[in-house]
Design a protein around this nucleic acid. Structure first.
Length: 439
RNA sequence: GCCCAGGUAGUAUAGUCAGGUCUAGUAUAAGCGGCUGUCGCCCGCUAGACCCGGGUCCGAAUCCCGGCCUGGGCGCCA
């Protein structure tokens, strides 16, 4: 098929821009054929764009032969342009329809699409991810990612307002940043390098100069996780603040979560409606539980966790029901947290690390950091990490490291909370996990 | 890494337990035809599938073994 050129056509607006009050006006619309219903003498084309759908009506005897033959050729997902007149009528979905004077075909599509884009026969997540570019055209997916966008916008706005500077740290690093999670190795001009699992050490160094920083970006974990809440590549919203303790950044965090829920609820009512999801804006402050309190609560529920052990998923599910929807867990055993988390001065077995839980899912991890070089070195050794491997980071502590604290939100987990999606891959454009590297 | 479940047209499923009119049903998508107010349009027709390999049996989509793939749970981890 010979495709049309866009020529001098300029879009008058998205589908959502047109209203019944524009009766008689000429509009130029761009988008995709979502559906066609041909009743014989009259044909309805549902044109879809990012903002929604619009009905283009073709009374076959009344339109020009050119428009009729163009519309004969149309199929689902064809990318098209329509120049036509708005006509107010209560017979169409949005109280008006567009009667075309000219139709252009910009791009064609396969006859048989791998998934049903009208949503009548929903496909499995695996099939959808294999055809992700097409899958993302579906309204619920557009809605979910618009919500994610609004969340990021709200987060940035909030942090800018609080005086944080947005920074960018390396994705390619020379050695293990913090132990714990496994790293992906890459070849760096013949030298062994790794993909960063977190900006932790860099953002700590940056508080020496910029004081209050945040970063939004992808990080990589080579864990063999096989769950609905883990990815090999995920987006982290990292914050670090100089001259702050754990409580100060926890307050910042709960305000941010509150603000983000409110912003999304206000900005995305249409998207939430599409997803049939309601956002409950949480009240602040969030419940603060110590690790010891959690253990005793669990014991009352018949779950014994030996002191010092990590809390198993089963136990988090119980806690999630006890303290919905958000709660902090503080005062973790020092040895259970990363080496840079500050042990409590009055009891070094406990530390100033915290987690923010949403139901049973860990949404945010943070804490007050160690600012004293000697203590940091001894913590490295306790974790069986070699201080030598961290010499470039450690040297920063010779130049006036301030007390500081921070946290990191898993953006996709936050989006799950905001959209009601139960699988993290639903809210990731092109998810990477143990079993998926494509598309 | 461990455990559980499952692979049937483009998609989603029924059938599998109790092997035999299963010549594999249905919906949706696709093709053709019809229809001037659809909005999950409707009606008729057409084409389209039992993951791979081996075994048991007169007979396997169905039972057994191996493989591959997928989903989920746990662990790891955030």
């Amino acid at each position: 098929m010979k495709l049309d050129s866009i020529d001098d056509w300029v879009r008058t607006g998205y589908s959502s821009f047109v209203t019944p009050e524009m009766d008689g006006e000429e509009v130029t619309l761009f988008g995709w054929v979502q559906e066609m219903r041909d009743l014989g003498g009259i044909r309805f084309i549902i044109l879809q764009d990012r903002e929604g759908t619009i009905q283009v009506t073709i009374p076959k005897k009344k339109v020009s032969p050119e428009v009729l033959s163009k519309s004969d050729a149309l199929q689902k997902r064809y990318s098209i342009g329509v120049k036509g007149t708005v006509k107010k009528t209560n017979m169409s979905p949005r109280g008006f329809e567009v009667l075309p004077k000219e139709v252009k075909i910009f791009g064609t599509a396969a006859l048989q699409l791998p998934i049903d884009i009208t949503g009548k026969t929903p496909a499995n997540i695996e099939v959808r991810l294999d055809a992700r570019a097409l899958d993302l055209c579906q309204e619920p997916n557009i809605a979910a990612f618009k919500i994610q966008h609004s969340a990021v916008e709200a987060i940035r706005g909030f942090l800018f307002e609080k005086g944080f500077l947005e920074v960018h740290t390396p994705r390619i690093i020379a050695s293990a940043t913090e132990g714990g999670a496994e790293l992906f190795a890459v070849d760096y001009f013949g030298e062994k390098a790794f993909l960063a699992q977190s900006p932790q050490l860099y953002k700590e160094q940056l508080v020496m100069s910029l004081e209050k920083v945040f970063e939004v970006g992808p990080f990589f974990r080579a864990e063999e996780s096989h769950t609905r809440r883990h990815l090999s590549e995920f987006v982290s919203v990292d914050v670090e603040q100089a001259f702050a303790d754990a409580e100060e950044v926890m307050m910042l965090l709960e305000q941010l979560v509150h603000h983000t829920c409110k912003a999304v609820k206000y900005k995305c009512p249409k998207e939430l409606e599409v997803l049939k999801h309601k956002i409950q804006v949480p009240t602040v402050p969030f419940k603060r539980l110590t690790y010891d309190e959690v253990l005793s609560d669990l014991k009352k529920k018949g779950i014994e966790v030996p002191w010092g052990e990590d809390i198993p998923t089963e136990a988090f599910r119980v806690l999630g029901k006890l303290y919905p929807p958000f709660y902090f867990i503080t005062d973790w055993p020092t040895h259970s947290k990363a080496f840079y988390i500050k042990p409590r001065e009055d009891n070094p077995d406990l530390c100033e690390g915290f987690d923010l839980m949403w139901r049973w899912v860990e949404l945010v991890s943070g804490g007050k950091r160690i600012a004293e070089k000697d203590l940091l070195i001894s913590r490295l050794k306790e974790k069986e990490l070699k201080p030598e491997a961290f010499k470039h980071h450690l040297q920063a502590f010779d130049y006036g490291m301030p007390p500081h604290a921070g946290w990191a939100i898993g953006l996709e987990r936050l989006t799950m909370m905001l959209t009601g999606k139960k699988n993290i891959r639903e809210v990731t454009f092109y998810p990477r996990d143990r079993d998926r590297l494509t598309p």
